[in-house]
Every structure is written in C-alpha cells, then in structure tokens.
Amino acid sequence: MGDHLHQFLRSDAKDNRDRILEVAREVFATDGLGVSMREVARRAGVGPATLYRRFPTKKDLVVEAFMDEFGRCREIVRTGFDDADPWRGFCYVLTELSELQSENQGFTEAFLAEYPDVVDVRSHRTEMVGEFADLVRRAKAQGDLRTDFVVADLILFLTANRGLASTPPENRLFAARRFSALMIDAARKSPTHQALPRHLKR
C-alpha cells in the first residue's frame, strides 16, 4: 500500500508540474512575462504554496517553462530525424513546429529579451540545425525534396509562421496546419517548380 501511495503522489506531483508549465507557457505567450505567480497558480488550478514549492521564484518558473518549450522543439526535430522515411520526417518537422509555434506565440521572444544570457540557446539550436540539415540531405537524396531547398528556409518558414499571432486564437491551429501544408507542397520536388532566388554576394 505504501508503494502504491508513493507512486500515486509522484504521479500527482508530475501532473501538477506539467499543468503549471503548460499554463505558464500559454499565459506568458498571451499576457507577457509580467503575469504574477498567483495568477499562474490560479489558472493552473493549484494553490500558491504548490507553485512556490516547485518554483521558488518567478525566474525559476519562466526558465523552466522556456526549457520545456525548447525541449518540445528538440523532440520534434529528433523524431523527424529518426524517421526511416526522410521526406515523412521532414513533413513532420514542419507541421509540428508550425503547430507548436502557433500555440505559444511570443513566449520565446519575450524570454530571450528578458533573460538573454540564462540559457545557452545557441548550442541547443546548433544541435537541432545539424539534425535538420542531415534530414534535408537525406530527403533530397531520396528524391522527394526540391534540390534548391536550404536549411535557412526553415528559419524563413518559422519567421513567416509567427505572423499567425494576428490570427484569432480559435483559428490558429487550423491556420498553422494549412500554412505548413502549403509550405510542404512548395518544398516537394516537382518539374514545374521555378528555381528559388539565390543569395547574391555584394
């Protein structure tokens, strides 16, 4: 009985933590980082004591929420990278990143503006970009991805995807899926495609 109770308490604590972080990401994305800890606790349905026990300071909560968000990005890229079918993995990455970004518009930018030196974002991004670059190479070799697609096009895609912030919240997920479908179709190799503009060195 003791072991079962201990396991239940651990599971309940994890559920509370996950719920707090999910709410924190949503609240910080929509209302900014100035939202109070008490407001986060209220929206998460937990008491302030529970919130402070897991996250003693506001900074602790914001950093953990960001790392959780970044971890989801890394997991998306890793899942696509591990797919035996590189084109399917490529499509998965674009679709899932678009949907994830549409959920929490503005949170990453707000975090980096407020805490620019807390997390070594560059090293994390370097690893993700490396995996995505290999996925791009394999999808091209497979013959499904247009040969003039470059890794920087993913950044272009995500930058454009941020424009979904102006879409009403209830329509963002649909818009993200539609936008990623359009981008995937544009990235698919086709004899009718015009060549993409090339960067010109000055």
Results as ranks from 00 to 15, higher is better:
1 M>I: 06
3 D>N: 00
6 H>A: 13
8 F>K: 02
9 L>G: 04
9 L>K: 08
10 R>S: 09
15 D>H: 12
15 D>R: 06
18 D>C: 08
20 I>E: 01
24 A>G: 04
31 D>F: 03
33 L>N: 00
36 S>G: 11
37 M>N: 15
38 R>T: 15
41 A>K: 00
45 G>R: 02
45 G>Q: 14
50 T>P: 11
51 L>S: 03
55 F>I: 01
58 K>E: 10
58 K>R: 15
71 G>I: 03
73 C>V: 02
76 I>H: 01
77 V>K: 02
77 V>Q: 09
79 T>M: 14
80 G>S: 14
85 D>R: 10
86 P>R: 07
91 C>Q: 08
93 V>T: 12
100 L>V: 04
101 Q>T: 06
103 E>K: 08
104 N>A: 03
104 N>W: 03
107 F>Y: 04
107 F>K: 00
109 E>T: 09
109 E>N: 07
111 F>G: 00
112 L>C: 05
113 A>M: 11
114 E>M: 04
115 Y>Q: 01
121 V>Q: 06
123 S>D: 07
126 T>R: 13
128 M>L: 06
129 V>K: 04
131 E>D: 12
132 F>K: 00
140 K>L: 02
147 T>F: 05
147 T>D: 15
153 D>Q: 12
156 L>W: 09
158 L>K: 02
158 L>R: 05
159 T>H: 12
159 T>S: 14
160 A>Y: 10
162 R>L: 11
162 R>K: 02
163 G>Q: 11
164 L>F: 03
167 T>A: 14
168 P>Q: 15
169 P>L: 03
170 E>K: 07
170 E>T: 11
173 L>P: 01
180 S>W: 02
182 L>K: 03
182 L>P: 00
185 D>A: 15
186 A>E: 12
188 R>H: 12
191 P>H: 09
195 A>G: 05
196 L>T: 13
197 P>E: 11
199 H>Y: 14
201 K>R: 13
